[in-house]
């Protein structure tokens, strides 16, 4: 029985070898780019010996030291700071971005002129298309201490003294939240607009006949009908709450050390450990901590998504 199944499988492989051949480049790529690094997470439990290179050493070389790297990591305040920052920022981003994006999408949907609607969409999507490096330049043009728009134009108008933005951690939760909103709201708005446009017009026509106001139409028809999309988008975002937008936290504060208490997140911490401090042990421990917790959260959110809508779940 088993043997005939095996023979059947072999026949199928030979018969469809072309299909397999076509899949190979992509699969080989996933092995290199994803699966080898997955196996490589074991280095978080090892003492790296820099003289030993190559694949074999990455996977099997180096001395095992157990959970030492993790002990060091969690003994410092860093672990708490970066976890708190990552979760608070992402949590805030999820709620604020969703609320603003839905509000904008609702307003945009009310615009009658198709031309103007397209124009507004193009403009609010613009920030989404540029790289975080450019966003760093734009932020600098606003916040530059000597010449920036804030210090030279806005604050004098309000009679406030110039602020040394890049060395005052207290302002950065607001700045980063604003920049994130500015960059991403256009994208989210487009998603929600697509959901709103899909709502059957008859609901609104019936509501108008019954004398419903615009506000009632929005709260009683639009929002309830796009609720599935909202739930799924938010769940997907919650699944990724342990991963932050590295560019936002690295480029916009100009990698300033003074701002670390309010701008350091897991991703910047891992990057700095690896690239500037050369502390691979600590860095890989923080990285694995992120991957492991991230994995659990993604599974959890996927499970919740699947309970609501099978089609939207990843698996």
């Amino acid at each position: 029985m088993n043997q005939s199944r095996w023979r059947k499988f072999r026949k199928r492989v030979v018969r469809h070898r072309m299909l397999i051949l076509m899949a190979l480049p992509g699969l080989a790529y996933l092995v290199i780019n994803n699966y080898l690094p997955m196996l490589g997470v074991t280095i978080a439990f090892k003492e790296i010996d820099y003289s030993r290179k190559g694949l074999f050493n990455l996977l099997f070389g180096h001395e095992w030291i157990g959970f030492k790297n993790f002990e060091y990591l969690f003994r410092t305040d860093d672990a708490y700071t970066i976890t708190r920052n990552t979760i608070l920022y992402n949590g805030l981003f999820i709620v604020l971005n969703t609320v603003v994006a839905i509000a904008v999408a609702i307003v945009l949907n009310e615009i009658r002129s198709r031309f103007m609607s397209r124009l507004y969409q193009s403009l609010i999507l613009l920030p989404y298309l540029i790289s975080m490096v450019i966003v760093g330049y734009l932020a600098l043009s606003m916040l530059n201490v000597e010449n920036g728009f804030m210090n030279k134009i806005i604050l004098p108008l309000l009679g406030i003294d110039p602020v040394s933005w890049y060395s005052e951690p207290a302002y950065w939760p607001y700045i980063l939240t604003f920049v994130n909103l500015w960059k991403n709201v256009g994208y989210l708005c487009i998603i929600y607009l697509a959901a709103i446009v899909g709502i059957n017009h008859e609901y609104y026509e019936a509501a108008v006949i019954d004398g419903a106001s615009k506000w009632q139409q929005i709260t009683r028809i639009t929002v309830p009908l796009i609720a599935p999309t909202i739930t799924i988008m938010m769940l997907l975002a919650v699944g990724r709450i342990f991963y932050s937008d590295f560019g936002l936290f690295y480029q916009v504060p100009l990698n300033s050390g003074a701002l670390k208490p309010t701008t350091d997140v897991i991703d910047t911490y891992v990057y700095r450990g690896l690239m500037t401090l050369g502390d691979i042990g600590m860095s890989s421990a923080a990285g694995l901590y992120q991957s492991a917790v991230g994995f659990v959260l993604i599974l959890l959110s996927n499970w919740l998504v699947r309970r609501r809508s099978r089609d939207q779940a990843l698996f």
Partner: peptide, 24 residues
């Protein structure tokens, strides 16, 4: 499933960096 799994779990920056620099 192997494709989907890459969306759920990733090795993170350090192993990826080591694979690309020291292996390839």
């Amino acid at each position: 499933f192997l494709v989907v799994f890459t969306l759920l779990f990733n090795g993170g920056l350090v192993p990826t960096y080591l694979v690309y620099t020291e292996v390839f």
